[in-house]
Design a protein around this nucleic acid. Sequence first.
DNA 1: GCAGTTTCGCAACAGCGTTGCCAAAGTGGA
DNA 2: TCCACTTTGGCAACGCTGTTGCGAAACTGC
Lengths: 369, 369
Amino acid sequence: MNSSPAPGANLAALRDHNTALVLGLLRDAGPAGASRAELADRTGLTPQAVSKITGRLRVAGLAAEAGRRASTGGKPATALRLMPEAAHAIGVHLDRDALTVTLVDLSGAEVVTRTSPLDLGAGAETVLAAVTAEAARVRAEAGGSLLGAGVALPGPLDHRTGVLHRVTGFPRWDGFPLRDALAERLGLPVVVDKDTNAAALGLVLRGCAGPAGSFAYLHLGTGLGAGLVLGGAVHRGARTGAGEFGHQVLRLDGPLCPCGDRGCIEVLCLDAVARGDVAEAARLLGTGAANLVRLLDIDLVLLGGGTLLKDAATYAAGVRDVLGAAAPVAVTPAGDRTVVEGAAELVLASLFGRDRLSGLPKAGLTHSP
Amino acid sequence: MNSSPAPGANLAALRDHNTALVLGLLRDAGPAGASRAELADRTGLTPQAVSKITGRLRVAGLAAEAGRRASTGGKPATALRLMPEAAHAIGVHLDRDALTVTLVDLSGAEVVTRTSPLDLGAGAETVLAAVTAEAARVRAEAGGSLLGAGVALPGPLDHRTGVLHRVTGFPRWDGFPLRDALAERLGLPVVVDKDTNAAALGLVLRGCAGPAGSFAYLHLGTGLGAGLVLGGAVHRGARTGAGEFGHQVLRLDGPLCPCGDRGCIEVLCLDAVARGDVAEAARLLGTGAANLVRLLDIDLVLLGGGTLLKDAATYAAGVRDVLGAAAPVAVTPAGDRTVVEGAAELVLASLFGRDRLSGLPKAGLTHSP
DNA sequence: GCAGTTTCGCAACAGCGTTGCCAAAGTGGA
DNA sequence: TCCACTTTGGCAACGCTGTTGCGAAACTGC
């Protein structure tokens, strides 16, 4: 999913790539930081190159020295760490009945979060006004260093243009240019993506996939969807349509699904949930997950979503039963913040070289005069 | 799926990237070639950079000028084209009962192909001897400009190490280091991959996916498998396990499959084939394909494999019936050469920047002294 | 015949990571 | 206490990348 118009790379692209890489490693290292030598080792760059890059980052205020490490027989290493407060991002989660807005710093840590009820079907004007108002409240904490806002909501939609399609249950949104409309209101760059994709991205930045690793995030809420991380990056497909896990046919010629097909996993699973048969719902989820693991050779299955989190342990156990040794199963470590946190990461990801396609114009924080 | 040990990029990596990009565009342009201005436009590089790159390619004998284009109001463009005979690659297709070896030039065009019967269960020594003998015959046509050999065979296996696992039906191969064993016999770099992955790669280089495009290649032979192309690159997964399409559960609690699960698409589909019910087999294939298209947002479904090609039109129609407008369906344009052609492309892909992970050490054809 | 357009190369350039060298700051043995 | 050794990391010079500025070449159209 490269931006195909200009796949050629010049020196500036090379510098940005390496800078993002280092910045990403610094973020992963956390408050303890990492030494220049460690960074050089992990990137494959020479120590001198790392020195130059970290020097630029320090001038830009994105990194700072953070004490000494114990010596291993020579000069002790100087730890470098990310300055989390150097920049912030807003995350917006538009759910069917609620609005959550969060402000996070560069490290992805929560600064403040506000949740309010919302009718996603109330019309564009009402929804936009609510988002704008909540964002303004949250924004005060950022102190001007705001990179942009990421918005996560149910699909289908087009994450490249930020235009919504027939959002499930709310067809009136079809064709609405959410990204541009919100960018104008907020005066900020805005990135829009499906809720499951945002969640997956957030989990990537939490380190749930190793470098070039993979996992599937299965989200069971009012519907059933998935976010796929392949080769370290979120797989969205050309039309942001990837992750339509709910309409995988699992029982040929089974019960009719609202989507028109028969035997979709969503209709089977939601039926089981409605009957209160959590074990069967988990078994269905597990069977679908096993299909994913086999098809995509995935390292890990992560579970989340409102319905599932109400009985997370039972679901996890049921899915684990079906998957066996095929892949480990875990519940999302971000809990009910999974989506909104990921929404904020939509903005930050490009800084850390974790996007391979973000709607944001390459944020050039280190462009020296 | 970057080679994670060294994601940092230096000037050499940048040059190789841009060179591969230009080389790839020249290959896609075919004998008609492309002008420097066109290449600059498509890569996003400056015309001057393209001139330097193509200059190196011409010195290396990989490209040459090929006449003038018609003027569009100014100086007419000079076409550049790939010199296909500058290098060759061997493709080896190890099937359960046959061995096919082919020699292709840089453009992927067939120079010579030899097919002979083979028992894949006859033991490593016998099989290796057969491959070595056939490769030697084919090799004579290359005139020394041989980059390496690509080997495609049924999985499971590890394409990064070239070590086989319990190849379906032939468990004796488990743990055999095919890549290294063959590399030693041939005195050439060798790349090993699953047959379906090789087929998918070959179709990518035929232009079946646009840049950053995607498709699924469904292969129905003695088994059922898939090669997945996502974002312009073959998706193999961390353990080369991706594409296990045959064991997608399609009928929950359905008939037992040799793999131990129930209702796998392979067992359903092969049953239908055995009954002579091609229409039902095609419907099953279509349902599985629809699952893929929805899950991965895929642009195109390509069909191939020995069993399918015997009645390609019927299968294509049946699959098309199920998929409807979700995605176009086509039969592999390479016919029964799909796999062996792809095997040869395993070697060539890295030259054209189409690998993102090839076992081959970056072939530095343009390294000037 | 001349202005305009388009292609493309030469030369000088800025900026990238690399190399060679050295200072700083520890450890550990004599 | 001293000294050899290891490890970290910066300075300066360097080679190589794509870029910029400029001009020659080659065609169209008035």
